[in-house]
């Protein structure tokens, strides 16, 4: 039941416990208890909304920064990651295998703002060797959701 509840809420956080209970064939009480437990152990951290910003007038500028770092004694990559992820401008931070070490998603209201953030804040952190900035031009799919307009139903209206 846990996995199903998580999947359903991940897809639509607005589902009520009652609706989930109906879909899973269990009681509302069981679902409420399970959700409470998941929230308490921080498996469910928060409920957020997936927004296609391109359809609003507030479209932010996003860039993926490839960061190469020198790992530090005792804390390894975690120390630098922590210094990076504390910035509000930073939306995601991943430790990567391969050519560079940290993938950092930075968001700002203009390209200049993002570029300045990288130049002044990110690249000046001790242990950061280099930053390569890639601006995102268009989002096709985000968190498993294709952002293009929904495909219409092409089926005949009545079939046997």
């Amino acid at each position: 039941m846990e996995k199903e509840i998580l999947q359903l809420l991940h897809e639509n956080a607005k589902l009520t416990p009652k609706q989930i209970a109906t879909m899973l064939g269990v009681t509302e009480k069981e679902v409420r208890a399970k959700i409470k437990e998941l929230e308490e152990r921080k498996a469910i951290i928060k409920y957020h909304t997936l927004i296609n910003w391109e359809k609003t007038e507030y479209e932010p500028v996003r860039a993926l920064i490839e960061v190469k770092v020198t790992p530090q004694r005792e804390v390894g990559f975690d120390g630098i990651a922590r210094r990076i992820y504390q910035f509000d401008e930073v939306k995601d931070v991943y430790l990567m295998s391969g050519d560079y070490d940290l993938a950092v998603m930075v968001e700002g209201s203009s390209m200049k703002e993002v570029a300045l953030f990288v130049a002044l804040k990110l690249s000046t952190i001790e242990g950061v060797q280099s930053c390569a900035t890639h601006f995102i031009l268009k989002t096709y799919k985000h968190e498993g959701v294709i952002l293009d307009d929904e495909e219409e139903d092409k089926r005949l209206v009545i079939t046997p």
């Binding site: 005949l156 009545i158 079939t159």
Partner: peptide, 15 residues
């Protein structure tokens, strides 16, 4: 009949 009515939600589709 259905094809000629607009704005219908169809629960009549067998696919």
């Amino acid at each position: 009949l259905v094809a000629n009515t607009k704005g219908v939600i169809s629960l009549g589709v067998g696919e």
